[in-house]
Amino acid sequence: MENMANKVARIPNLVDWSTGEVRLMSAKCNSCGTYFFPREHYQHRPGCSREGVENVLLAGKGKLASYTIQYYPCPAPFKTEKKITPYGIGLVEFENEKIQVTGIIIDTDLKSLEIGMEMETTILEMYTNEEKQQVVTWAFKAVQ
């Protein structure tokens, strides 16, 4: 991905692009098998020893489990310099990790959205900060 060095996530430890592929930063409990997103969103199975939680990256691609189109701008503290509204929000299912994650949908014809379609994790550039870095969040787009 081009020029990722000049990008910074608005909140850290949620999205990783260091390998060249954009992936969500999850944690997995090796005792109860549950994946968490965000990492700190612990959701252990009752009775789990809670031992062996390790940081993992979710798969780069998943399937659209649900979606909506948001017709009014998201209020603060959301912030973007782009006119993204109306914007899509997807709930993307990562089958192996047995988890669904929400995210803004970009670079996709919103009319083409359909439950079950293949989506990939990507980056949405929201605004430029004082250090001239692009401040980003994670997003999803349809696999071309």
Binding site: R10, C74, P75, Y87
Partner: peptide, 16 residues
């Protein structure tokens, strides 16, 4: 996180 990164006002959850 849901406000700053997710763009997720309450009704979106219900719509999903």
């Amino acid at each position: 996180i849901r406000w700053k990164m997710g763009g997720l006002p309450n009704p979106i959850y219900w719509a999903l």
